[in-house]
């Protein structure tokens, strides 16, 4: 008999790892769906593709896309931290490093959302 336990506590490194993996899984699934959607271009000289793109042109999908971009930015920001750690840089400051990359990531996300949302809403309203 063994006890099983995944120790996360409130340890930042563990949460960064877990969220990195979850974001990675979401992005891998998105990649599959994305390629499948684009594959419709071979039908009806692109008319099927245009139909799908029109269905996607609504606020709900745009919001989901922003969540997707949030996952991309998180994965990128923490991935940057992981690569720094691979060069044994900042290894004794990994928590500060995490806050730093998360801060930069948050700024990029807000910038993306602010520029993307009005465009999305404008095209959705047409």
């Amino acid at each position: 008999m063994r006890r099983r336990e995944l120790w996360l506590g409130r340890r930042l490194g563990a949460w960064a790892w877990l969220l990195h993996r979850l974001a990675g899984i979401v992005l891998a699934l998105y990649l599959v769906v994305h390629i499948m959607t684009i594959s419709t271009a071979r039908f009806e000289d692109g008319a099927a593709f245009d139909r799908i793109m029109r269905t996607f042109n609504n606020p709900v999908v745009k919001l989901l896309e922003i969540l997707l971009i949030a996952a991309v930015i998180f994965h990128m920001a923490n991935g940057f931290r992981v690569i720094l750690l691979d060069f044994v840089l900042g290894i004794h400051h990994q928590k500060a490093l995490l806050w730093a990359v998360m801060g930069v990531g948050a700024v990029i996300l807000v910038a993306v959302a602010v520029t993307l949302l009005p465009l999305a809403l404008a095209s959705g309203a047409r």
């Binding site: 245009d50 793109m53 029109r54 993307l116 009005p118 404008a122 095209s123």
Partner: peptide, 19 residues
């Protein structure tokens, strides 16, 4: 992302456009 979203200035993505 830049080419498909921002450079299009919010226009709907279409087959002809991407092509």
């Amino acid at each position: 992302l830049w080419l498909t979203h921002w450079a299009q200035a919010g226009r709907e993505i279409s087959f002809d456009e991407v092509s």
